[in-house]
Nucleic acid binder design. Sequence first.
DNA 1: CTGAAAGCGCTAACAA
DNA 2: TTGTTAGCGCTTTCAG
Lengths: 359, 359
Amino acid sequence: MAKTTGRAHRGGHSGVSIEDVAAAAGVSTATVSRAVRGLPRVSPATREKILGVAEELGYVASSSASGLATGRTRTIGVLAPFVSRWFFSKAIEGADRELHARQYNLSLFNLGGHGSHRERLFSKTMVYKQIDALLVLCMALTHEEIEHLQKIDIPLVVVGGHVEECPYIGIDDYAAAAAAVRHLIELGHTEIALLHGDDETDLNFDVPRVRIKAFQDVMAEAGLNVRKEWDEWGDFTVRSGQDAFHRLWDRPGPKPTAIFCASDEMAMGIIFEATRAGVRIPEDLSVIGIDDHDFSEAMGLTTVRQRPDEQAELGTKMLLDELDGIAGAVRSTVAPHQLIVRSSTGSPGRRASPLPPSN
Amino acid sequence: MAKTTGRAHRGGHSGVSIEDVAAAAGVSTATVSRAVRGLPRVSPATREKILGVAEELGYVASSSASGLATGRTRTIGVLAPFVSRWFFSKAIEGADRELHARQYNLSLFNLGGHGSHRERLFSKTMVYKQIDALLVLCMALTHEEIEHLQKIDIPLVVVGGHVEECPYIGIDDYAAAAAAVRHLIELGHTEIALLHGDDETDLNFDVPRVRIKAFQDVMAEAGLNVRKEWDEWGDFTVRSGQDAFHRLWDRPGPKPTAIFCASDEMAMGIIFEATRAGVRIPEDLSVIGIDDHDFSEAMGLTTVRQRPDEQAELGTKMLLDELDGIAGAVRSTVAPHQLIVRSSTGSPGRRASPLPPSN
DNA sequence: CTGAAAGCGCTAACAA
DNA sequence: TTGTTAGCGCTTTCAG
């Protein structure tokens, strides 16, 4: 241990300090510092010796101390509204990959589910001075929050949704939604319902809006009628898809032959309830989603794939590059999407068949 | 800003320091420190004044500095093998709830998917001196890793699985599995297959083993025959459930009337493929899982519920209590489980009916 | 109740 | 190539 006196009264954290290593190796702390960080200006012999001693003593630099000295924490923050929903957990994994590879730590800030909407406003305190950069995952943010973020003046990027004035990475939501709707139309559907995501008014988040717009535009383009009664909404969960199905079906009047869902989870909700109600997929109802959730392949759900993990990985890379001094590394980028046709969509033709094929 | 000279050359992090606040409030840094942390020995008047100034200046204490001074980071680490699987993402959410409530940060260490098995061995470096305590999520750990962890001499608890010599929180896996199998037996099933989890030999992780043992014991107890060909395994994913179904069905010989799956995701895989193959659930095949995954209710999957979020929340609370000086706060605890009967299980009776009811 | 001052462990000029 | 030395910003005795 070091020689100072003031140590004993502190919180008993054991731990070998750089001084211990320096002493044991017969060099100065400065040299140890260079050696362990792999910096130049250390002779091979000295370096080897120091590394040996460090290893032996089990030395690990204190992140607080080096953080204080350098002004960097080597930690990046990830802000998410949920962690257990598909998009977010995948994105976190992606961010982690890049972070791990570059020896950074990941600090997770989960804004969802904590108290009131008001209180969730991340007290600057939360992230301030604790992270070197921030990755925001597809959050609906208030203007106030955006301002806060920008004041914190650290590299920042948002993944999975536009937030005004912030660089973002995500798919072209308009094009993705349009591709889904076109697929349905090409199959011959004309009676198409829409299950869109929450609007979250006043929360600066336009992913739902953009997808709705795409739906309307493509329908109009094709000269198809958009029925108001078939305009349903959900919150991206399976549950909300189930509820939407019932609102659609437990009501008199004609039924759509296809439904475009703004997320796979909602599409699954539709499929579960449809099946339960004896509505066959895709004979009676074609269902398409967006995402390509882990379960979608198993369920045969046709969808427009996106890769949140890759989006987050890229965003993280940009952040880290920026921190490495590459100015302009962080820039808005459009991520790819791809239509994946499976068995939940088909032509509306067989619909009226009185008896199902022996299936 | 402060007055020192050595500042300019550092990494341009702006930021108001405690000295700035002290100066602006006309008090010493010691007093500011007490005031902002809500410690006693500050007159109400002074405190108010300081808080006002701090607010105005946007002061936030540097975590590195206070970490260095106190030896605490106010961060706890969460070690997980995956983040996007149900159990883990739920557990992370649970841990976060408690952490957030107590003003701690959550540092996520994702061991899965990173390079080779060897390399994944968490270099002590990774967590050492960066966190005050560690929550390990249901990890299969090598002996070496366990040793490492114990050397790091910080509060530690594992959630969701036994790890020898470590305090753990989780359901009684034996009882939970037994409850599932008994449910099947009570329904009248005698031909029961098992889809268990990976063994991960040599990784100190016995959840799969325990569940297998329970299955065998209960079957024996009931005088039922356990067929070797009906002993399947998977890795807890939907995909592996699908594969298992095919191994079971694409083979000549009698078929089971029920299957006990060690996880809901695997059970879902079975259901998806069974449905696709025309095997009706539960008329032809009853399926039961363990977990109560988010999708289980929607799918009508009978299961034994557990709440990873609550387990992790409790584990985190113990860790934090321990850090608060409550010695012995961390102790192994059995979490509750509960059989949830839905529509994927039923009596094997109708099995031989030549024609399905108009369903 | 308040302030002075000595560190916490590490880094980064600057000298040597 | 290596060491000296001044901090980084905050906490915590200890005195007053």
